[in-house]
Computed example of a mutant assay.
Amino acid sequence: MRAVTVTPGVADSLGLDENYPEPAAEEGAVLVEAVAVGICGTDHEIIAGHYGEAPPGERRLVIGHESLGRVLEDPTGALQPGDLVAGIVRHPDPVPCTNCAVGEWDMCRNGRYTEHGIKALPGFARERWRVPPTFAVRLDPALSDVGVLLEPTSVVAKAWDHIERIGHRAEWQPQSVLVTGAGPIGLLAALLASQRGLSVHVLDLATDGPKPELVRALGATYHSQPVNDLDFEPDVVVECTGAPKVVLDVMCKAAPTGIVCLAGVSSGGRTIDFDAGALNRALVLENNVVFGSVNANRRHWDLAAEALAQADRHWLSTLISRRLPVSRYQEAYQPGPDDIKVVLDFAV
């Protein structure tokens, strides 16, 4: 069968293997036929050789962690043939740590977790894949064109879950949220904010292209000026750019008792002259919280499936800027200037 693979740590080693072996039974009872795979910045970094880890004893890694497929068989009976599913990316470590032991593998403490298409597990960019039943998330059949968005939605579902947990440390009645960055994660974070009835603001550098209209279609307000020029203090910030200056600016911009969730990953290596003492004073005296969030556990994947089922299908489909067949995989993995989400289509 066909699979898109890389040699981890070797830049530009992306290739299409026409004779990749069928998934081993040990990978899980549920056999799935791939429908689509989403492409994100993590894939680009793996292709660039920055990180990635092949399964034990193997040289190549099948990439792809944003999946959508249809069940071919599940001898356990948990799923039925034809069910639309996505595969959960992260699996708990084998020790396990205290969090992995209770299903909170997104909060793994010892780093021995594995991840499909990223770390020591083959990814979903192959024609057929397997997972255990508890790692296959059933989607509404109506999501067949957009269900590939489930993985990034699970990331922001986890972010909102933790925001709300922190918020309830006291009487909490948030009114406004600022999302910085209007890529897939930022737009989906704004979607979940709008579903919560909040006044949503999205800030991004783009002034044309699809992003401003996608934000407005949610009933949200689009901004392209610097954070410090905004004329309000948000109760919640979901920071999705990872840009160091933006990260620091939103920490200072949040309202008293505000919550700042850092969902973007910075590249590092850049120094900014910044008054850390003033930031510390503001965080302490205003009882503000800043925390990082990445990945998701099964609870968050289920919440994400519910959020997508409630969302406008046309709006979701507009997030997908390009769909390309597997035969054009090289083109699919080349970022385009107006891309939001690119999808590799296994169904054609």
Rank of each mutant, 00 (worst) to 15 (best):
G69F: 03
V71E: 11
L72I: 10
L72P: 00
D74I: 08
D74A: 09
P75V: 13
T76Q: 00
T76L: 12
G77P: 08
G77T: 10
G77H: 04
A78G: 08
L79Q: 05
Q80L: 14
P81G: 04
D83L: 09
D83C: 13
L84C: 00
G87Y: 01
I88Q: 13
V89T: 08
V89S: 09
R90N: 07
P92H: 00
D93M: 08
P94S: 10
P96D: 10
C97S: 11
T98R: 15
N99Y: 03
C100T: 07
A101T: 03
A101M: 05
V102M: 02
G103M: 07
W105I: 05
D106Y: 10
C108P: 03
C108M: 03
C108L: 03
N110D: 15
N110R: 09
Y113D: 10
T114W: 00
G117A: 08
I118M: 00
K119S: 14
K119R: 11
K119F: 09
K119D: 13
A120C: 00
P122W: 00
P122R: 12
A125P: 08
A125F: 14
E127I: 06
W129Q: 03
W129H: 12
R130L: 10
V131L: 08
P132E: 04
P132W: 03
P133L: 08
V137E: 12
L139C: 00
P141Y: 15
L143N: 08
L143K: 09
S144K: 02
S144M: 06
D145I: 01
V146K: 01
V148G: 01
V148W: 12
V148I: 02
L150R: 07
P152H: 12
P152R: 03
T153N: 01
T153K: 04
S154T: 04
S154M: 01
S154A: 15
S154H: 07
V155E: 03
V155S: 06
V155I: 15
V156Y: 01
A157E: 14
I166D: 05
I166C: 12
G167A: 02
H168Q: 15
R169P: 01
E171T: 14
Q173I: 10
Q173D: 15
Q175V: 07
S176V: 03
V177I: 10
L178F: 04
V179M: 00
V179A: 03
T180H: 01
G181H: 09
A182L: 02
A182S: 07
G186N: 13
L187Y: 00
L188K: 10
A189L: 06
L191H: 07
L192D: 11
L192Q: 13
S194N: 01
Q195D: 00
R196K: 10
G197F: 05
L198W: 09
S199F: 08
V200D: 06
H201S: 14
H201W: 09
D204T: 10
L205D: 11
L205I: 14
A206S: 14
